[in-house]
Simulated scan of single mutants.
Amino acid sequence: MSTPENAIETIIFFDIDATLVENRFSTRVMADILQEIADASGQPRDALGRALVAENQRRQLETPDDPLTMDWGDIALTVAQQYGVSLSQSLDALWEAYANVDEVDLLDDSPAVVASLKAPHRQLVIATKGLSKYQYPVLRVSGLLDLFDGILAPDIAGLHKASPGYHNSYTRTAPDALIVQVGDHYEDDVMAPKRNGFVSILRAPIEELAVHDAFERPQYFPAYADRLHTYPKEGTNVLPDAIVLSLQEVPALINQLEAEKGIPKNG
């Protein structure tokens, strides 16, 4: 079986946070913002942190496709104003200033995994719920940015990651391609991709599942679902196609999926 030169037969979407990396500098950014609001308002910092999360959750529920829904700078300003505080520092400026390689942990040697997946017939794309202005600094300092062929974010797609159509700018160009989403978030990386007809690979390092094949693990996952904080409280019948404990397992799964679809190793 031969394919036209540069034909894309497999598109692999990767989440960032808790999939490729753990971002620790974000905690310092939030701490500085919350401390300023706390000092000026007299409110406990923990309560203010909960207010930030609540405002983000409200936006995701009411206006999911508005880019401001995931704009933590705007969320911080909104919460500060609720307590009569005018911030002297910009969350976005702090984010850029604090971004550094020492506070971004690479999970499962993720750059090597992504590099091993590169092939002429594959397109590797970041698909994130975070805005690009927050994710580009993380990708740059981690060395991951140049390994990907593109990035999708709410401000780029004009849609929330879980919304239908979020992936269209890539999937429409290769309607017959194998489409795979790799990530850790149950709604964004399992439920939404499965609704779209994609293959879902969930990163969930649950050691008890190690004894099972990656494609068999989903049937055992419900017994451990409470360990995944993004699993919906109301439950769901939707399961991923495969579960990996480490990204190191992903290349072999992609090869297997491509073989089943009849995609030659060299595209």
Rank of each mutant, 00 (worst) to 15 (best):
69 T>G: 09
46 D>A: 05
107 L>E: 11
139 L>A: 10
213 D>C: 06
42 G>C: 07
235 G>T: 04
65 D>V: 04
8 I>D: 00
103 E>A: 02
107 L>R: 15
138 V>T: 08
140 R>T: 13
121 H>I: 09
244 V>N: 04
165 G>I: 02
14 F>D: 12
75 I>F: 11
139 L>Q: 07
3 T>I: 06
125 V>R: 11
94 L>Q: 11
135 Q>W: 04
158 G>M: 01
199 V>M: 03
113 V>Q: 12
39 D>N: 08
66 D>S: 08
92 D>C: 03
246 S>H: 13
64 P>G: 08
24 R>S: 13
197 G>T: 01
59 R>Q: 15
151 I>A: 12
102 D>R: 10
172 R>E: 15
211 V>M: 10
202 L>A: 05
148 F>D: 12
108 D>C: 09
246 S>W: 03
21 V>I: 14
199 V>N: 00
66 D>E: 11
197 G>C: 08
267 G>Q: 06
168 N>L: 03
193 P>F: 02
86 S>M: 08
56 N>V: 10
133 K>G: 06
95 W>G: 09
85 V>C: 12
13 F>Q: 10
134 Y>C: 09
96 E>S: 11
68 L>E: 13
10 T>S: 08
173 T>D: 10
203 R>L: 13
232 P>H: 03
212 H>V: 05
216 E>W: 02
129 K>M: 03
203 R>K: 15
136 Y>S: 11
20 L>T: 12
56 N>P: 05
186 Y>H: 05
60 Q>M: 09
192 A>W: 00
94 L>Y: 08
100 N>W: 02
67 P>E: 06
131 L>H: 14
73 G>A: 10
170 Y>W: 13
197 G>S: 05
227 R>G: 15
49 G>F: 01
191 M>W: 00
126 I>S: 10
104 V>Y: 02
243 I>H: 11
41 S>V: 07
22 E>T: 05
10 T>Y: 00
140 R>A: 12
5 E>W: 01
93 A>S: 12
168 N>I: 00
14 F>W: 12
81 Q>V: 07
210 A>G: 14
131 L>D: 11
142 S>H: 05
213 D>Y: 04
18 A>F: 01
93 A>C: 02
90 S>A: 05
227 R>D: 11
35 Q>W: 03
40 A>H: 11
64 P>T: 08
89 Q>H: 05
162 A>F: 04
213 D>M: 04
